[in-house]
Nucleic acid binder design. Structure first.
Lengths: 333, 333
DNA sequence: TCCGCTCCTGAAAACGTTTACTTTGGAAAC
DNA sequence: GTTTCCAAAGTAAACGTTTTCAGGAGCGGA
């Protein structure tokens, strides 16, 4: 591949002059400039980003570490981050940690080595981000937080979301509400469970630990947790699933058992999806402003990249309960 | 951030020796090696990927340009590519062209400038990839092809998929089958329409151009195309939608019109999704081996990166018709 | 004692840019 | 005609690695 030297010698000028033309420095006058542009065209020359990065000691790339590329929630997040990056002429280095601590660790190492300008991270483990933060790389956590890490974050008010959903079920008359929960090792799992428990306590209902089943964040985790709940005797009359894919899995378990929603069992999902409305009945769900979460995280990152000294900030966005047909009063008896 | 020089001077050795330790060169003996490792630890030194890239004139990154990050089909593709990249210790630079030619062009420029080791591209426009290919950057097209571009590709047998779906409808007795089609400027749109037409011709049915409505690849495109079809008099008795999001949009249009599936109208979607089976009735669909497509594309890319001289290859994978409850014989009259 | 060999380490070049500083040449001012 | 000044273009250093080549220490054998 042609380098700036080739262009310079072919055009009969010095590399400095070529560089000036590339960077639109107006000090290069027309005869030289025209000749250089022609030569560039002729050689199909493209300046090496590698060398530019080297020279400038910076890269116009931001890292994005998510935990499940196949989850539409994170996909919307990616979309938002991409949009903001594009506006700022940055590109996105995408890493899928797959809820795997080792993978997360490795990717964060990569981001650090490659000297990305900043990173947006959905943290899976407790300490993975620490090295980045210590190396003064701008970092924004999104969706989840980790305790004791001083970094910007954008998250949902998970407690409020789970509280509202559970309260809705209680108000409909449910007393045995199953939770298809997520691992409490991540903040999302912890907080949504806390919201559920808070609503039960607020209504003076007893917490029955058997009504809480934990699964991984995927379809399969929801399926298994829901199956366990459906085996209970007496069966819960309602289920709250704490993320979108787990909701899908829970619905599958319910449909396998030939139970009807909401007649036999009410269901609330977390994180509304377009197709929730198409199900029969359409699913009641806690909607997150997902795209907005992503946008804010990205903007926060760019703000931090511009000003390392600005105060650390955690933004908490509000969920909204969308009541549709999958929740109703429990059957008598 | 500390550099190799800092480590060298602090440990009282030359940069060469430090570099050797970093690269596990066994020629460095223990007193020096131990001192260097300690110093590295102490300074929190991390070798600069930027400088390494500069020196090696290469980057362990592959570019991935997709047209819609929010479409689960592409997401699965990303996942597959990521998995293969991870195995090979490469990372993925993700670009979302958003079906926008300008964005695609820009991203391909970025990939070229950044000297990525290779690229996997879902081409939106006709010529965007050409510069990359001309610059001898290994490129694999996926999902779509562009005519006259000599590059590896992995695609679905779209004609066969649409043919099978349409034939299934014809065999059920449908004679007026609407196509919720995609722009024929991209191969996927063209070929799926061709499969549809081929099936009609094979059964000696007349092609009615009013039964073909084209929309963009998203939910909204499917919604609008389906609405147009549902306005026809007489209404089609069946609809084939040519991608997953368009199927979602078509279902919304049908549900708005209060038509029942399959009693009033049969529906087939393209590209099966987990939630298709949860709809009432569960959707009949043409399933693509999406993950496999991504894996093959990535493997092909790595093969090409290793051997630029290997013959150019186009792999065509087979779809499968999954018959569920959304297709039935048309109502009498 | 000296040569030659091995083994470890150091010096320096190279990768492709950008940019501060220097040189050149021509025109204006005297 | 000489000096001065300015614009335009060139020279070279720097960014942080890796790697080639060279140097030197240690040691065994003659």
């Amino acid at each position: 591949m042609a380098s700036i030297k080739d262009v310079a010698s072919k055009a009969g000028v010095s590399v400095a002059t070529v560089s000036r033309v590339l960077n639109n420095n107006p000090r290069v006058k027309s005869p030289a400039r025209a000749r250089i542009l022609a030569t560039i065209d002729q050689l199909g020359y493209q300046p090496s980003g590698i060398a530019r990065n080297m020279r400038s000691q910076s890269v116009r790339v931001i890292g994005l570490v998510i935990s499940d590329i196949q989850n539409p929630f994170f996909t919307t997040l990616v979309r938002a981050v991409e949009d903001v990056a594009y506006e700022n002429q940055y590109t996105v280095l995408l890493c899928n940690s797959d809820e795997d601590l080792q993978k997360e660790q490795l990717y964060i190492d990569v981001l650090s080595r490659e000297r990305v300008a900043g990173a947006i991270i959905v943290p899976t483990g407790k300490d993975a981000c620490t090295p980045l933060v210590n190396a003064r790389v701008p970092v924004v956590m999104v969706d989840r937080t980790v305790p004791d890490l001083v970094a910007d974050a954008v998250v949902l008010d998970n407690v409020a979301g789970a509280f509202a959903a559970t309260k809705h079920l209680i108000e409909l008359g449910h007393r045995r509400i199953g939770l298809v929960g997520a691992p409490t090792s991540v903040s999302v799992g912890r907080e949504r469970q806390r919201g559920y428990e808070k609503a039960l306590r607020a209504s003076k209902l007893k917490l029955d630990p058997r009504l809480i089943c934990i699964g991984n964040f995927k379809e399969q985790g929801g399926y298994q947790a829901a199956r366990a709940l459906l085996e209970l005797d007496p069966r819960p009359t309602a289920i709250l699933a704490v993320n979108n894919l787990m909701t899908l899995g829970a619905c599958q378990a319910i449909s396998e058992k030939r139970l009807r929603i909401p007649k036999d069992i009410s269901v609330i999902g977390f994180d509304d999806m377009p197709w929730f409305a198409l199900l029969t009945p359409p699913l009641t769900a806690v909607r997150q402003p997902t795209y907005e979460i992503g946008i804010q995280a990205a903007r926060l990152l760019f703000a931090r990249m511009q000003d390392a000294a600005r105060p650390v900030e955690t933004r908490v966005l509000k969920p909204e309960l969308i009541v549709r047909g999958s929740t109703a009063a429990p059957a008598r008896g």
